[in-house]
């Protein structure tokens, strides 16, 4: 580009003139080199216009798509958006650093309590022993016949999973749930025990120590 072309091009880049302005158009008509630079910007503008059309089409298609039940369940991730106050056991949530620390503390305290609670007698339904705000076990109702009745409330880090451990206090055998994630939140593992102790262990994909909930003893 010669001096005049460079000067005009700098004015374009400083926002003093638009590439549609007559002096730019006129210069592009006179100078092939200059027109090439203008064309490059127009090419990107054309791509942006294509992206804009694409976005509009996608938004329209998405708006017309049916809302599935599982889509509605997403609202559960932000309790503020619903009137519900209780969390389903499969509820996921991003855990802040603060709540992660709290969860770690609960894990330590919960595990220590669990280690020392072996001789505790069964209660029906017992209080949440050593319960905390981070993990709360919900006592299963009398007549529970599968692990799906063992619900808990609390946050589950994205990508992590949990296992429900149920110990039959009569046979001392453990009925453990499969690894549960958001896609397996409704376990149907049958249960015939009458007196059980149960707790939940949260596993994190980040490799930190598992979080162990307080244990709860119940008669079913």
């Amino acid at each position: 580009m010669n001096w005049e072309e460079k000067h005009l091009w700098e004015r374009v880049l400083r926002g003093e003139v638009d590439i549609e302005d007559s002096e730019v158009v006129a210069m592009a008509a006179r100078s092939h080199t200059f027109s090439v630079e203008v064309e490059k910007l127009r090419h990107v503008q054309t791509e942006l216009a294509g992206a804009q059309r694409d976005m509009i089409q996608i938004l329209e298609e998405a708006r017309q798509a049916p809302v599935l039940d599982k889509d509605r369940r997403l609202l559960e991730h932000i309790p503020e958006l619903t009137s519900k106050t209780s969390h389903a056991p499969w509820l996921w949530g991003k855990r802040s650093k603060l709540s992660a620390l709290a969860a770690l503390l609960v894990a330590v305290l919960g595990f220590a309590w669990y280690q020392n609670s072996g001789s505790r007698e069964a209660q029906n339904p017992g209080p949440v022993l050593g319960g905390s705000a981070a993990i709360t076990l919900v006592a299963p109702k009398e007549g529970a016949t599968s692990l799906e009745h063992f619900e808990w409330q609390g946050e589950l880090e994205f990508g992590s999973w949990y296992v429900v451990h149920v110990l039959d206090l009569e046979t001392q055998e453990e009925v453990t749930s499969p690894r549960l994630s958001s896609h397996q939140w409704n376990p149907a593992t049958p249960l015939t025990a009458r007196h059980v102790r149960w707790f939940v262990v949260l596993h994190s994909p980040s490799g930190t120590e598992p979080v162990v909930s307080p244990a709860l003893e119940v008669s079913l």
Partner: peptide, 25 residues
Amino acid sequence: STVKSLYYRALERLGRSMGLPQGEW
């Protein structure tokens, strides 16, 4: 002019990132 300047300079950068030839054709 500030908005235009940012816009046109961004177009240049996008062109380079997208593989449009650098410098004069």
